[in-house]
Design a protein around this nucleic acid. Structure first.
Length: 677
DNA sequence: GGGTCACCAGTTTTT
DNA sequence: CTGGTGACCC
């Protein structure tokens, strides 16, 4: 039994609410995750079967965290049957059982971005020979956006003013046909197919509605139209849907998230009970005043104001620096003084910026000062080539119709199958409407394929077929995989390609990690299958606890990351750098998307990460693309209540606090004039 | 099939 | 100024 009295009145009301729609507007640092987990625990204690409870999150990390916290509170076996999943993994689970109703086979492959790029590039090549991967990205982006809007291929119409959309209108149907032929779906399809499945099969929908009598969605402000429809379907009938989110932290519009989902929730679900969580348990009063002051200027939002029962805490500071090096040095100085003055550790500091390229001067400076740091972000993690190569083998073994994966490994490691031969085979396959996999059994019928190449193809087909048999036996899968990797001589291949032996070693370790993943998977599941494993890996849900963000944060190092990655995290001391027009708000938002409010939310997210100290920095000038550029302070600085911000402008002579305040207010009146339009 | 050179573009990210 | 990509040559 947990103590309801440990919650504040609003939190308690949210936990106790049982039937009917509930909108929980949870400000930054208001104990949101705690409320969700308590709510689950409370429901179970009230006698609701765990298997009737569904909690949906956006990331595997959040799902894992929630699951673990529930387990901690009432034990794993008391919550057995409860489903805590990401939108994507939920849909995979549903599709695993029913995708045949959409004409796919159960062992479908899941295509990630690079698979999609490859497929679209190939489709574009068929259309015109001089298409670049740039074009493919443009088309891919539009297809993904269309799918996020629930637009099927036949519904997509190009726009004359956007040439790429015309290409997309052409490619999208072909792309979808190819996926079907390959028995593959992309990430967006996972959700879209879920929606389609329920649209076309009321019996299934009914089944899942009954199964998930109580539903919860975290970060609801990040839902896109497909996710919205899925929830509409699942919660239809009983309407026991609890959504949790913060419209002020909606920062993913660029990937289809629609704030109006959360803003209009009460309209969509009449009878909604709305609870606001505004008491903040994270930041000091000054920090909250800055955050509130900025965010209240957004036009479309729910009125909310964070407050704390603690004091004002340290001053929030703004330091105007000369250039990016100066900015980095100022941060270093500050880290040193804080560590000497209080007992902060390196892990207590985070440096946040708008664009990843801004991390550079900090990496250099931190290296120079020999301060340990971790850089979060980049994509390396999701796009590790060597990992994808092994996975491609598994995908083809499991599903030989997966032609993107097949083409990836057909000549990897090298077996003398050149590009020309591959082109000929692909053309023959298209012209005679024979699948690649079938055709590869008889490459000689293509003609113009020399003997050596044929031999290579036979070798390849033989490997895939042998391991297909091998994996279908009830032998331990990880042993079979070890054997496969050994036979393919993958590590030899990596050593041959990679000059730097250190890097080569790492890449081989990455490959070996797949084996660990598989062993872990085998431990976890009663009826493991190759398809199941691949689908898990494809959703990046494969690692027990290796090497993820969490791990990095525990290493007691200064953290460097983008504002987007910082959402959901907190640090005692935050440096929010690059507070300049062009960065925050980003220039694209000023001149192209015109969505300053989204940038303001981003700024708000950054500010509310800070627990004790918040230092804002910006530079007068910056080297950009080789040229020196004058910079203007971010307009958001002038939106902070002037009495809450202490400004340090190095060009001024040393001054008393009164003078500083004076110069601050001058500074702001200048700025607000500048941006008053 | 691999290496070199010129050219181009340069938010944000998860699944 | 960078890093990534594509064309071209050996």
């Amino acid at each position: 039994m947990f103590d309801l009295n440990s919650l504040n009145p609003q939190q308690r009301a949210a936990v106790i609410h049982k039937d009917g729609p509930l909108l929980l507007l949870a400000g930054a640092g208001s104990g949101k995750t705690r409320v969700i987990t308590c709510r689950i625990v409370h429901m179970i204690e009230q006698g609701i079967a765990p298997s009737n409870i569904l909690a949906v999150t956006f990331t595997n990390k959040a799902a894992k965290e929630m699951r673990e916290r529930v387990h901690e509170m009432i034990g794993q076996k008391n919550s057995k049957g409860m489903v805590v999943a990401t939108f994507h993994s939920l849909c995979v689970q549903i599709l695993k059982s029913h995708i045949d109703r959409l004409g796919f086979k159960k062992n479908f492959s899941i295509y990630g971005t690079s698979d999609q790029q490859r497929l679209i590039r190939d489709l574009l090549r068929e259309l015109s020979s001089d298409s670049s991967s740039k074009d493919a990205d443009q088309v891919l982006w539009r297809i993904s956006a269309a799918k996020n809007q629930c637009l099927l291929p036949e519904q997509y119409k190009g726009d004359e003013r956007d040439p790429f959309s015309l290409v997309t209108a052409h490619i999208y149907p072909r792309y979808q046909q190819s996926l079907k032929a390959f028995n593959a779906v992309d990430f967006d399809d996972l959700l879209l197919f879920g929606v389609r499945l329920f649209d076309e099969n009321p019996d299934l929908l009914d089944h899942y509605r009954k199964r998930f009598r109580y539903q919860m969605v975290d970060e609801y402000q990040d839902t896109n139209p497909v996710q919205y429809r899925l929830l509409q379907q699942l919660a239809g009938g009983h309407k026991n849907l609890c959504v949790v989110g913060d419209d002020d932290q909606s920062i993913y519009a660029f990937r289809g998230a629609d704030v109006s989902n959360i803003l209009d929730f009460e309209k969509d679900f009449p009878g909604t009970k709305t609870i606001k969580l505004e008491q903040n348990y994270r930041s000091s009063g000054n920090i909250l005043a800055c955050a509130n002051g900025i965010i209240k200027l957004n036009k479309k939002r729910r009125e909310k104001a964070l407050w704390t029962s603690d004091g004002n805490g340290a001053d929030v500071e703004y330091i105007l620096c000369e250039d990016s090096e100066d900015e980095a040095r100022k941060v270093m100085e500050r880290i040193h003084t804080e560590m000497a003055r209080s007992n902060y550790q390196y892990g207590d500091f985070a440096i946040l910026y708008r664009t990843n390229s801004q991390s550079r001067s900090y990496e250099e400076q931190l290296n120079y000062e020999e301060i340990p740091f971790v850089l979060i972000g980049g994509q390396q993690f999701f796009e590790r080539k060597e990992v994808k190569d092994v996975i491609a083998y598994l995908k083809v073994i499991d599903n030989p119709t997966d032609e993107v994966s097949l083409l990836r490994i057909l000549n990897y490691p090298k077996r003398g199958i050149g590009e020309t031969s591959i082109d000929r085979i692909i053309r023959h396959s298209a012209e005679h409407n024979i699948s690649l996999w079938k055709l590869l059994h008889h490459p000689e019928q293509v003609g113009e394929i020399n003997e050596r190449t044929c031999a290579g193809i036979y070798e390849f087909v033989d490997i895939i077929r042998r391991y297909r048999t091998q994996f279908s036996k009830s032998l331990p899968m990880d042993e079979t995989l070890t054997q496969l990797m050994k036979e393919l001589k993958l590590s030899e291949e990596i050593y041959r390609q990679e000059k730097d032996p250190q890097v080569a070693k790492r890449r081989i370790e990455n490959q070996d990690e797949i084996l660990n993943s598989m062993a872990y998977y085998l431990e976890q599941y009663d009826s493991p299958s190759l398809s199941g494993f691949i689908q898990r890996v494809s959703l990046n849900d494969d690692r027990p606890d290796k090497n993820d963000k969490e791990d990095k944060l525990e290493s007691n190092s200064v953290t460097l990351m983008s504002l987007h990655s910082s959402k959901g995290l907190e640090f005692p001391v935050i440096f929010l750098v690059g507070m300049e027009e062009g960065f925050l708000p980003h220039k694209k938002s000023i001149y192209e998307t015109f969505d300053i409010d989204e940038e303001r939310r981003l700024c708000y997210v950054g500010i509310t990460r800070a627990r004790q100290q918040l230092v804002l920095l910006g530079a007068r000038r910056r080297r950009k693309y080789g040229k020196i550029e004058q910079r203007e302070p971010s307009r958001f600085l002038s939106e902070i209540p002037a009495d809450r911000l202490v400004v340090y402008d190095k060009q001024l002579p040393e001054s008393t606090p009164e003078q500083q305040e004076q110069s601050a207010s001058n500074f702001f009146s200048n700025m607000s004039q500048m941006f008053n339009d």
